[in-house]
Write a protein that binds this DNA or RNA. Sequence first.
RNA 1: UCCGCAGUAGCUCAAUGGCAGAGCAUUCGGCUGUUAACCGAAGGGUUGUAGGUUCGAGUCCUACCUGCGGAGCCA
Length: 436
Amino acid sequence: MTQIYIDQLNGHIGKEVKLKGWLYNSRSSGKLVFLQLRDGTGIVQCVVFKGNDEAVFETAKGLGQESAIIVHGTVKEDARSPIGVELDVTGLEVLQNVHDYPITPKEHGTEFLMDHRHLWIRSKRQHAILRIRHTVIKAARDYFDDLGFTLADTPIFTPAACEGTTTLFEVDYFGDDTAYLTQSGQLYNEATAAAFGKSYAFGPTFRAEKSKTRRHLTEFWMIEPEVAYATYEDMMDLGEGLILAIVGRVLKDRQQELAALERDTTVLEAIKGPFPRLHYDDAVKLLQEGHAKGELENNFEWGGDFGAPDETYLSKQFGLPVFVHHFPTAIKGFYFEVDKDRPECALGIDLLAPEGYGEIIGGGERAADLDYLIEQLKAHNLPQETFEWYLDLRRYGSVPHAGFGMGIERTVAWMCGIEHVRETIPFPRMLYRLRP
RNA sequence: UCCGCAGUAGCUCAAUGGCAGAGCAUUCGGCUGUUAACCGAAGGGUUGUAGGUUCGAGUCCUACCUGCGGAGCCA
């Protein structure tokens, strides 16, 4: 008897097979038991007839949710089945019978589910989300690989900040030194881009922000490309291509999961290039018009950073992801290149996702001039000493270059159309949430 | 950090200041096609913690704890 997975059943109709998995749910009547078996690739209904084998029937009747079982049976086509097939059970091995599985088929609250995250990921909805995450990551990596980028991952322990210094997680490093968990691989990406021309890093990043919103995790994953001899405009082209590749792949490979999540796929199918590209000045104008029309509570003034309502308003004007570029230099990191004609504007780009999912890409053109960078380090109160290696990149073959980071969890939340990013990663780390 | 809401059975929630309740889950019984199955029965409670008001508090008041939603900040 061949052991197969549930997603292979359609190729074994009429044959006797063995399935190894867990009991998702069960129902019974006087003469038959329906076992919903899951094995990670799908769920199939296994039918146990009392008349076939009384002992197997009694065993099946006594099984609780999430019992570990191996089912033998004949694959039968059945129009009533959501996957087109069922299994007529001929044998049943019980590895463990479970009777107190905490997550029942009815509703649960967020806290309870988060406390049982290690079990919650077995549920249909979580399963669908995490498989879409897998596809988003695969699509992103394939996109860069196919363009000739070299994957060059950056360290997680770092000696210094690259985003704001207030949001660093500190780690004791053998007693005599302090390390910080990385907030971005960007500075190192600039080094690898100078080595490989086109490089990218993919890994977790950490921000000790005391943010309690649906878009924030303290540990989140980013994919960060960096390209030598590239401009901020090149990054908008690259970022647009990346998003189109991801949306296209999710629609192609994950229809079943999108359906399980009841995602309105028409809004994803409508995502086509070119994406609108707004100068910060024009974005400010739009926001001020929005306020005048009474659609935005606060009046936005030039020089500020967008709040969540502002981002949502901007992206809703287009139904497409929207690039905003030329942010005020004052609100951006020390490493941004500035517009030569308007030094108060940095060559930074952000991509705002539709439907209020917020900023999913942030990046821009990096400052190439050594003296300017030294000046900026001082202005940002950063110790030049720890950045000497970074400054070397401007001493030895400095060229214009640009890059960006795309947040995986926000992108997955957008693809899935779900409320909160906490469901887009197997084990989310949030403010006040370190377990399980 | 600030603002708002909530905390009652394993879970999701009810209960006019006056007997602590239901559905699901669990256990037992019934049903030959169920799709979060259904029908019957049983067990299951320090009402988040500490104090206060009252003849009487799950309910009102104070403080604290925990969670959720939002803001700021950010991907």
